[in-house]
Write a protein that binds this DNA or RNA. Sequence first.
DNA 1: GGTAGGATAAGCT
DNA 2: GCTTATCCTACCA
Length: 194
Amino acid sequence: MIPLPPRFYARPTVVVARSLLGQLVVSRVDGRRTVGRIVETEAYLGPHDPACHAFGDRRTARTAALYGPPGTAYVYFTYGMHWCLNAVTEAEGYPAAVLIRALEPIAGLGTMRRRRGAAADRALCAGPARLCAALGVTGVLNGASLARGLLRIVRDPAARRVRVNVTTRVGVTRAADWPLRFLVGGSRWISRGA
DNA sequence: GGTAGGATAAGCT
DNA sequence: GCTTATCCTACCA
């Protein structure tokens, strides 16, 4: 289980978003091991992307982690009740990231079901807030490295062979026509996508 | 199969 | 006050 190194993330955000498809997210939160394969991502390009939290280069307490080194977790709270997980990309100081939108559950399914309540397996990790609940990801992980610690993204050699589909991003109202959502072709684990 | 409305809080104008 | 990178339930077909 080799974690993806910071240099993996220190590339154009679109490249990172595509390259993350097929890789594995491994959580050890609360001493429970849960693992999922990334099947859906979205790119948020930074100060010039109207849908990015750091649009206009506005640095606030909330967006501080976006300015951290590549490979940092940016975990934000939204809609009053949901957490969402991003991987920070590009050079340190440049606020861009990839939102992890859906996982194929691989291990720790019992823990995921318990954390998610009564949910069908198809819906365990099919959505950015759903997968955070399933893996136990909350704001305490905001700013942490994804190369070590409780939450890691590790390399899966099979990721090289995934077929990539591209669509517009889900739920965004600005720059809604930008083709920055990336999906593993044929996967049955992707989010519904509004 | 689908869609409408509500929950709930930080950030912005 | 209004919006938001969401999800769940209830309801209709």
